[in-house]
Deep mutational scan, measured.
Amino acid sequence: DLSALRVEEVQNVINAMQKILECPICLELIKEPVSTKCDHIFCKFCMLKLLNQKKGPSQCPLCKNDITKRSLQESTRFSQLVEELLKIICAFQLDTGLEYANSYNFAKKENNSPEHLKDEVSIIQSMGYRNRAKRLLQSEPENPSLQETSLSVQLSNLGTVRTLRTKQRIQPQRTSVYIELGSDSSEDTVNKATYCSVGDQELLQITPQGTRDEISLDSAKKAACEFSETDVTNTEHHQPSNNDLNTTEKRAAERHPEKYQGSSVSNLHVEPCGTNTHASSLQHENSSLLLTKDRMNVEKAEF
C-alpha cells in the first residue's frame, strides 16, 4: 500500500496539472479547448457565450486583445492532455480508494470495455495498479461463464418462442383441414349439385314461356288486323247491294208514291245487322237523297 506522504505528493502534482488545464472563465477543466490569436485557451462554450454578448469583436479576458469567431481554432494537443489527466485522476481514485477533492464528473469518461483496460497499462506502473489488474484478471474467467449461461438462457427462450410460433402455425392448418373434411358430406355435395341443376332447368323453362307469350301476342295482333281488313271488305261488298236497293226503291216510288213515303220513313230507323257505323252513315245519306228525289217527283206529278 501507498504511504500517506506519497499520496499527498501525487495529489499535489495532480492539482498543479489541473490548474494549468483549467479554463480562466469557468475555472474547470477545459472541455473542447479553443485557442485565440494571443495563444490563450478557453472552453469553446465559454468563448461563444462571451462573443454573443456583444456585437462585433470582444476582448480576451487575459490580455484584452480583440477576439472574433473566425480567429478561434481548435487545439487537439490540449484536448489530449486533458484526457490523460482524467485517466490519471481515475487511476488515483481506484488505487487509494479516496475521492479526489477537486474531482469532476468523471463517470462519463469511464469505460469498462476490454480495449480501455489494455490502455490503462500505459498509465502508471504502481503496486495498487498491479493489484487491481490481478483482481480484474481473476474476475475475467467468471465473466465468460456468466456470458455462457446468459447465452444458453437466451437460446432456450428463443427455442420456446420458436416452438410456440410453430404450434400457432400448425393449429390453424389443422382446424382448416378439419373444417374441410367435416363441413360438407358427400350427400350434401350431391344435393347441392341437384339443386343447381334444377335451378338451371327452371331458368331454361322460364325463358321459352316468355317467348311463347310474345308469339301469342303477335298472333293476336295479326288476327285483329285481319279482322279489321275483313270488316272493310264487308262494308265494300254491302255498298253495291245498297245501291241495288236504292234503284228498286226509286222504281217503286215512281209507281206508288204514297205507299213509299211511309216505308221510307220506317227504313230510316232500321239498321242492317253486321255493318259498322260507317255503313250506317252512308245509308242515312242515301235515304235522305231518296226522300228529296221522291218529293221532286211528287211535285212534278201535281203540276
Results as ranks from 00 to 15, higher is better:
2 L>W: 12
3 S>V: 10
4 A>S: 09
4 A>N: 01
5 L>F: 07
5 L>H: 05
6 R>A: 06
7 V>K: 07
8 E>W: 01
9 E>D: 04
10 V>I: 07
10 V>G: 13
10 V>M: 11
10 V>K: 13
11 Q>V: 12
11 Q>P: 14
11 Q>T: 09
12 N>K: 14
12 N>R: 06
12 N>L: 14
14 I>E: 15
15 N>F: 04
16 A>N: 08
17 M>I: 07
18 Q>I: 11
18 Q>R: 08
19 K>C: 00
19 K>V: 03
20 I>Y: 02
20 I>L: 06
22 E>V: 03
22 E>F: 08
22 E>S: 04
22 E>R: 10
23 C>V: 15
23 C>F: 13
24 P>F: 00
24 P>Y: 01
24 P>L: 14
24 P>V: 14
25 I>A: 04
26 C>V: 15
26 C>K: 15
27 L>I: 03
28 E>L: 08
28 E>S: 08
30 I>Q: 03
31 K>E: 13
31 K>F: 12
32 E>T: 09
32 E>M: 07
32 E>Y: 09
33 P>R: 10
33 P>M: 12
34 V>L: 09
34 V>S: 08
35 S>Y: 06
36 T>F: 02
36 T>D: 12
36 T>Y: 01
37 K>N: 01
37 K>R: 03
38 C>E: 12
38 C>K: 15
38 C>L: 15
38 C>S: 14
38 C>R: 15
39 D>E: 03
39 D>F: 09
40 H>T: 13
41 I>H: 04
41 I>E: 01
41 I>D: 12
42 F>H: 13
42 F>A: 07
43 C>M: 15
44 K>N: 05
44 K>G: 10
44 K>F: 02
45 F>H: 09
45 F>Y: 06
46 C>K: 15
46 C>A: 15
46 C>L: 15
48 L>N: 08
48 L>E: 15
49 K>F: 09
49 K>C: 03
49 K>A: 03
51 L>S: 09
51 L>C: 12
51 L>R: 07
52 N>F: 11
53 Q>G: 11
53 Q>Y: 08
53 Q>C: 07
54 K>M: 12
55 K>C: 04
56 G>M: 12
56 G>L: 09
56 G>C: 12
60 C>N: 14
61 P>R: 09
62 L>A: 04
63 C>Y: 15
63 C>E: 10
63 C>N: 15
67 I>D: 02
67 I>R: 10
67 I>A: 04
68 T>M: 09
68 T>N: 03
69 K>V: 00
69 K>I: 00
69 K>R: 00
70 R>G: 09
71 S>F: 13
71 S>L: 14
72 L>N: 00
73 Q>F: 05
75 S>N: 12
75 S>A: 04
76 T>M: 11
77 R>H: 02
77 R>Y: 13
77 R>I: 09
77 R>G: 13
78 F>Y: 04
79 S>G: 04
79 S>H: 04
79 S>F: 07
80 Q>I: 08
80 Q>M: 04
80 Q>T: 14
82 V>P: 00
83 E>P: 08
86 L>P: 03
86 L>V: 03
87 K>F: 02
87 K>I: 03
87 K>H: 07
88 I>A: 10
89 I>K: 03
90 C>N: 11
92 F>N: 14
94 L>N: 14
96 T>D: 12
96 T>A: 04
99 E>P: 06
99 E>M: 10
101 A>T: 02
102 N>P: 12
104 Y>N: 00
105 N>C: 05
105 N>K: 08
105 N>A: 07
106 F>K: 09
107 A>C: 07
108 K>F: 13
108 K>N: 13
108 K>W: 14
111 N>Q: 05
112 N>T: 09
112 N>G: 01
113 S>G: 02
114 P>R: 12
117 L>N: 05
119 D>G: 01
120 E>S: 14
125 Q>V: 09
125 Q>K: 08
125 Q>M: 06
126 S>V: 11
126 S>K: 08
126 S>A: 10
128 G>D: 06
128 G>C: 12
129 Y>L: 08
131 N>K: 04
131 N>G: 03
132 R>D: 01
133 A>M: 07
133 A>L: 09
133 A>R: 04
134 K>Y: 02
135 R>L: 07
135 R>N: 08
136 L>H: 06
136 L>P: 13
136 L>K: 02
137 L>H: 11
137 L>V: 07
138 Q>A: 04
139 S>Q: 07
140 E>R: 07
140 E>T: 10
140 E>L: 07
140 E>H: 10
141 P>V: 09
141 P>A: 13
145 S>D: 01
148 E>R: 05
148 E>Q: 07
148 E>N: 09
148 E>P: 06
149 T>C: 05
149 T>D: 12
149 T>Q: 04
150 S>E: 07
150 S>W: 00
150 S>Q: 07
150 S>A: 10
151 L>F: 08
151 L>D: 13
152 S>K: 02
152 S>Y: 00
153 V>G: 13
153 V>R: 10
154 Q>F: 05
154 Q>A: 11
155 L>N: 11
155 L>R: 12
155 L>Y: 11
155 L>W: 03
156 S>Q: 13
156 S>Y: 07
157 N>Y: 10
158 L>D: 10
160 T>Y: 05
161 V>N: 11
161 V>A: 12
161 V>K: 15
161 V>D: 12
162 R>Y: 09
163 T>Y: 05
165 R>A: 09
165 R>Q: 01
166 T>N: 15
166 T>H: 11
171 Q>R: 14
172 P>S: 00
173 Q>R: 03
174 R>S: 04
186 S>K: 04
188 D>R: 14
189 T>L: 14
190 V>D: 11
192 K>V: 00
193 A>E: 12
199 G>W: 00
200 D>K: 11
200 D>G: 07
200 D>V: 05
201 Q>P: 09
203 L>H: 11
203 L>R: 08
203 L>A: 12
203 L>C: 15
203 L>P: 15
204 L>Q: 09
205 Q>I: 00
206 I>C: 02
206 I>M: 12
209 Q>K: 13
209 Q>E: 12
209 Q>A: 11
210 G>E: 09
211 T>D: 03
211 T>L: 01
212 R>S: 03
213 D>R: 00
213 D>K: 04
213 D>Q: 05
214 E>I: 02
216 S>P: 13
216 S>F: 05
217 L>T: 13
217 L>A: 02
217 L>W: 14
217 L>I: 05
219 S>M: 00
219 S>E: 10
219 S>R: 03
220 A>P: 14
220 A>F: 00
220 A>I: 06
221 K>R: 08
222 K>M: 07
222 K>I: 02
222 K>E: 07
222 K>V: 03
222 K>T: 01
223 A>C: 01
223 A>M: 02
223 A>S: 11
224 A>V: 08
225 C>N: 09
228 S>F: 00
228 S>Y: 04
228 S>L: 00
229 E>R: 11
230 T>L: 03
231 D>R: 11
232 V>N: 13
232 V>I: 12
232 V>D: 11
232 V>A: 13
232 V>S: 10
233 T>R: 07
233 T>P: 08
233 T>G: 12
233 T>N: 05
233 T>S: 09
234 N>P: 15
238 H>Y: 00
243 N>G: 03
244 D>W: 13
244 D>R: 01
246 N>M: 11
248 T>D: 12
250 K>P: 14
250 K>M: 06
250 K>C: 12
252 A>F: 03
253 A>V: 10
254 E>P: 06
256 H>V: 09
257 P>C: 00
258 E>S: 02
258 E>G: 13
258 E>I: 06
258 E>T: 08
259 K>L: 07
260 Y>V: 11
260 Y>W: 08
262 G>Y: 05
262 G>C: 01
262 G>N: 12
262 G>I: 10
264 S>Y: 02
267 N>V: 11
268 L>K: 13
269 H>P: 12
269 H>G: 13
270 V>D: 10
270 V>M: 10
271 E>I: 14
272 P>V: 00
273 C>R: 01
274 G>T: 15
274 G>R: 01
275 T>Q: 05
276 N>R: 00
276 N>M: 00
276 N>S: 02
277 T>Q: 14
279 A>F: 00
283 Q>S: 02
284 H>L: 01
285 E>C: 01
289 L>S: 01
289 L>R: 13
291 L>E: 12
291 L>Q: 08
292 T>D: 14
294 D>T: 08
294 D>V: 06
295 R>K: 09
296 M>S: 11
296 M>R: 15
297 N>F: 00
298 V>D: 10
299 E>G: 13
300 K>S: 00
301 A>P: 13
301 A>D: 11
302 E>V: 03
